[in-house]
Design a protein around this nucleic acid. Sequence first.
DNA 1: TTTAGACATCGACGATCATCGATGTCTGGA
DNA 2: TCCAGACATCGATGATCGTCGATGTCTAAA
Lengths: 124, 124
Amino acid sequence: MARVAVPAPTLGAPAVDEGRCCVAPGGVPLTEAQAVELSAKFKALADHKRLTILSIVAASGAEETCVCDIQEPLDLSQPTVSHHLKILVDAGLLAREKRGVWAYYSLVPGALEALAATLVTPGA
Amino acid sequence: MARVAVPAPTLGAPAVDEGRCCVAPGGVPLTEAQAVELSAKFKALADHKRLTILSIVAASGAEETCVCDIQEPLDLSQPTVSHHLKILVDAGLLAREKRGVWAYYSLVPGALEALAATLVTPGA
DNA sequence: TTTAGACATCGACGATCATCGATGTCTGGA
DNA sequence: TCCAGACATCGATGATCGTCGATGTCTAAA
């Protein structure tokens, strides 16, 4: 995919400030490609079952979590849990490591923090 | 709705740490109600058109933005823009103020920051 | 009062999503 | 080599979502 040369797109208000109405803004601070990329990550968070999965994995701290740890409190079928886990891995939020018969999941270090950083203002 | 007495639910890894596999975690750090409430906000962010809307509103800084400012760069019909704006307002991310014939939208102060805070660890 | 314009709401339609049962793949043990 | 178990993938289905045209509401001006 084409990499854009912008450091870190955020949603928080930048230094731009021109008072007017019904005039096109000087520049849209989020390209469509950036918006699509960002929305893909938020889509992964836009499901309460997946948020619960993340919280379960996060709750085990540095330890990794296997699928059975996740399936039971979620009250979902095994294929559905596997589906949600794939979405979280594809979004870059979870890491999967297969050891023997078990698959262990862990938070990708800094992934959630980087996503959080896109929500706050760059300067303040 | 029933208010839960937890200060601020987050996804980041708390201090819990017990090494084991295939045993239910000591406690799920996100209740279902909290997960549903959080996912509703991320659902509002899970669309690239809505992210663009937020960035446009944020780009006007302290100034408010009217619908026509948003509609043009988005290349969407007016009802669709209105629909997205309603979703963002319902999620508590945008504030709507009607003055005369125009409706002005602005970021709810601290809303994005509060959402970002749920993604990072409480302590570190 | 009538008219024009800005915006919200409604109803419909195609697309995407969450979910599940069935099945496939791979590993470890008998 | 065969079997059992853990997990992923596949196909199908019902629900939700994004989008639009048509219409409604409200305000300001004529």
